[in-house]
Amino acid sequence: MSLLETINDDIKTAMKARDKESLAVMRMLKAALQNDQISKGNELSEDEELTVLSREMKQRRESLEEFKDAGREDLVEQTEAAIHIVGNYLPQQLSENELKVIIQEAITKVDAKSMKDFGNVMGVVMPLTKGKANGNEVNRLVKELLNA
């Protein structure tokens, strides 16, 4: 079953349960997936669906930081709930240790010696961690391991 079908089923369940908050987030995810599908002109692959979800998660995390900085607790709670719902559709997130192993293997693979090789390492790591790790966290760990 595709992600879009799963979200449609979950929308029906949320409608029956009268869960307006979850329903709004799931409808937003469905719209984002459908918009990408329309712009590509064909069905989205699993990888493309993951890209859309990752983008939506990134937007929610950025909004959360802005709301916290502005002291908008009402929006912080709402955004945290949305992050949780979007996270249900993403694959299991990698731990920091798992990320370090992947990054170390990439450093060895591209024979990285310094920060000059940062782009090459990120080019290998990002496709492997797509949807499974926060890009900012990957970025931080790559810098940390290259400077070690």
Rank of each mutant, 00 (worst) to 15 (best):
E46W: 05
Y89T: 01
G87K: 06
L128R: 15
I38E: 01
K68P: 02
N8Y: 01
E144W: 04
Q92E: 05
V86D: 01
S63D: 07
A112Q: 12
L50V: 07
D9T: 15
D69A: 04
T13R: 15
T13F: 09
N88M: 08
V101M: 13
A82F: 03
N97L: 09
K130A: 10
S54R: 07
E80T: 01
A82Y: 04
L90G: 09
N139K: 14
V25Q: 03
K116D: 14
Q59E: 10
G135W: 05
A148H: 12
T13N: 14
S63T: 04
V52K: 02
E137G: 06
V138P: 07
A31P: 01
V110S: 10
D19R: 11
P127Y: 06
K12Q: 13
L145C: 09
L128H: 15
I107S: 09
N139V: 01
M57P: 02
V101Y: 07
S2T: 10
R60E: 10
A82G: 03
L29V: 02
E73M: 09
A70R: 13
V76E: 07
A133F: 12
D111S: 14
E49Y: 00
M115A: 13
L44Q: 01
I11V: 10
T79F: 04
S45V: 04
L128P: 15
S114F: 13
S95E: 06
A81F: 12
E46S: 15
A17C: 02
N134C: 05
M122P: 13
Y89S: 02
